[in-house]
Amino acid sequence: MITETLSLPVGRQRSVIPGFGITLGLTLTWLSVIVLLPLSALFIKTSEISLERFIAIVTSTRTLHALQVSFGLSLAAAVLNLIFGTIVVWALVRYDFPFRRVVDAIIDIPFALPTAVAGIALTSLYAENGWVGSLLAPLGIKVAFTQLGILVALIFIGLPFVVRTVQPVLADLDAELEEAAASLGASRWETIRRVVLPAILPALLTGFALAFARAVGEYGSVIFIAGNLPGQTEIAPLLIVIRLEEFRYADATAIACVMLLASFTLLLLINRLQRWSEMRGTGA
């Protein structure tokens, strides 16, 4: 229905629709003012720092610890989200149960709930006198103000990325493939492992990468529950804020530059994964 109009070689000059020049010009201008110019300011300011100074800042014990906490816990949270997200997707797509639509809708809560609200709510839940924290305290498990608390916050904000990426792919999966595998004598587990899993693998990896990328830069939901002890529960975005408040602009800029480069790398990776995922989708 749509392919016909789009696959016609509509040259720009031959298009009868007006407004190309002005809309593209405005788009590029606004994009430059709001996004590109500010981001390039970060690189300009970074270039003003000498290389030795930059390396000294980035490899200082406190920075390395903060980066380690941010990337390490984000990775752990993304792995847990991958596992639980897949279970949630499977239940939502394959099974019927009461209030399935409501359950489906609440998946998006972490997208919609402001991070500061999530932060104070999780902190009050997991503090030693909180609903969950008071149950875990007798077992000797402390969540709030430890790395475990950061992990809880990162799981909260990352879950919808995995679910919403994998869900449509699993829903679109051709049931005939599984029937064919079963009729050829494959056990259910074999069918899932060798037919379903390869088909949803690109989506799983995309969701994993999206959850990881979001977690690395997360600030609001983490800082309340983290405890923010340098070297232990201090995340990299918080260290940027602290350096800024101390007027140590070079330090803040250098750490931010590292974070931004990590974001760009992840973005490229995610784009690759999405293209792979789309090819799988259309090729099947």
Binding site: P38, I44, G217, P237, L244, A252, M259, F264
Partner: peptide, 15 residues
């Protein structure tokens, strides 16, 4: 979407 909110604020401080 892929830039940390803190970095998003910082770039305006740098400008």
């Amino acid at each position: 979407f892929s830039v940390s909110p803190v970095v998003a604020g910082l770039v305006y401080v740098l400008l």
